[in-house]
């Protein structure tokens, strides 16, 4: 594989409120190769969306991407760019699509103008050329008779078409990286399936790398090459999608996989993870998952486990003391 297009190292995004800083993202590192898809999964409040916004440096005060973080796009560190230089990156080299297309499209501008605006801004082409590019992009994302739809307003599009228009806008400048934050969560399953297919085929044709954030493990299993599982602002497990979902190592990943309702096999009672995601204001001491973990022992309550190597799999003391898992499962229900 070629050199990574995006390398994030020790990303920390803290919100500095009156008392303790709120450590929303707390030391996240990953790299992304051209033409591949990285899935980020986790429950709400674990820091997935803040990770994406941090990469684009779209964090407002009192939030701050801490200076020791490094976000490298090719060989440039985005942390060192000025705001004006960042504006040339956003929507051009890295673009983003969001969950709810209706709130991220401007309702009083036509779809065509919104796509053309990005092209004119970043490519410095004229009005007519930008419009033509907009029509071409709408065609590429599968909107029939694209020239005729340029003058439509967002409300004239259905939910699935709006998400297509968002994708057209995000890809209009041929970005290296597409950050997709829950892009299909608001859509019906049949439409979701179409959008996932569309993203995969566009990736084949255009070669961009995708960071795909979702709480839905089924969706990520379908689209991602590699997966990061986040919990409480940290990566707790990472690896190839097939391995993570078939042989999870971290107890949180195991718990998540067991708690999803299945469409195949026998319909049994679901195994829930006890409790809920803690608040970023006070992450638990030691391993952040220990209050909900069925395997936790003394060490987990005291010492936070680390992901030592960059390619380490699971942030869990069981990696060092695997015999603890066996004991527990024999004794367990």
């Amino acid at each position: 594989m070629s050199a990574p297009v995006l390398q994030v190292a020790d990303l920390r995004t803290y919100f500095h409120t009156a008392d303790e800083p709120l450590r929303a993202v707390d030391g996240v590192s990953f790299s992304l190769e051209r033409g591949t898809t990285l899935g980020i999964v986790g429950e709400s409040g674990c820091g997935k969306s803040i990770t994406c916004l941090s990469i684009l440096r779209l964090i407002d005060r009192p939030g701050r991407v801490e200076p020791e973080s490094s976000i490298k796009l090719g060989d440039r560190d985005l942390m060192e760019l000025s705001e004006a230089q960042m504006r040339a990156v956003r929507g051009n080299e890295i673009s983003m699509i969001f969950q709810e297309p209706m709130t991220s499209l401007n309702p009083v501008w036509t779809i065509g103008d919104q796509i053309a605006e990005a092209v004119r801004l970043h490519r410095g082409v004229g009005r007519a050329a930008a419009r033509q590019r907009a029509a071409e992009m709408l065609g590429l994302v599968g909107i029939p008779k694209p020239e005729g739809r340029l003058n439509d307003y967002p409300h004239e599009f259905s939910g699935g078409m709006r998400q297509r228009a968002m994708i057209a806008m995000a890809l209009a400048c041929d970005p290296d990286v597409l950050l997709a934050d829950e892009p299909t969560t608001a859509l019906d399953v049949t439409i979701q399936a179409e959008i996932l297919d569309l993203l995969a085929s566009l990736q084949d044709r255009l070669g961009m790398a995708i960071v795909f954030v979702s709480h839905d493990l089924g969706v990520v299993a379908q689209i991602a090459d590699r997966v990061i599982v986040m919990y409480a602002g940290q990566i707790v497990e990472q690896g190839d999608t097939g391995r993570v979902f078939s042989q999870p190592r971290h107890p949180y990943t195991e718990g998540l996989l067991r708690s999803i309702p299945r469409v195949t096999g026998k319909a049994a009672r679901l195994t829930a993870i006890a409790g809920s995601v803690p608040s970023a204001r006070r992450w638990p001491r030691g391993c952040r998952f220990h209050p909900r973990c069925p395997h936790a022992w003394e060490r987990c309550r005291e010492e936070p486990p680390l992901l030592l190597a960059a390619d380490a799999t699971s942030r869990c003391w069981l990696e060092e003391e695997p015999q603890r898992r066996a004991v527990r499962e024999e004794a367990g229900p």
């Binding site: 399953v189 979701q192 969706v219 299993a221 979902f245 195949t264």
Partner: peptide
């Protein structure tokens, strides 16, 4: 169309 984690079968 339901995205299944385990797509076998």
């Amino acid at each position: 169309a339901v995205p299944a984690v385990d797509a076998r079968g």
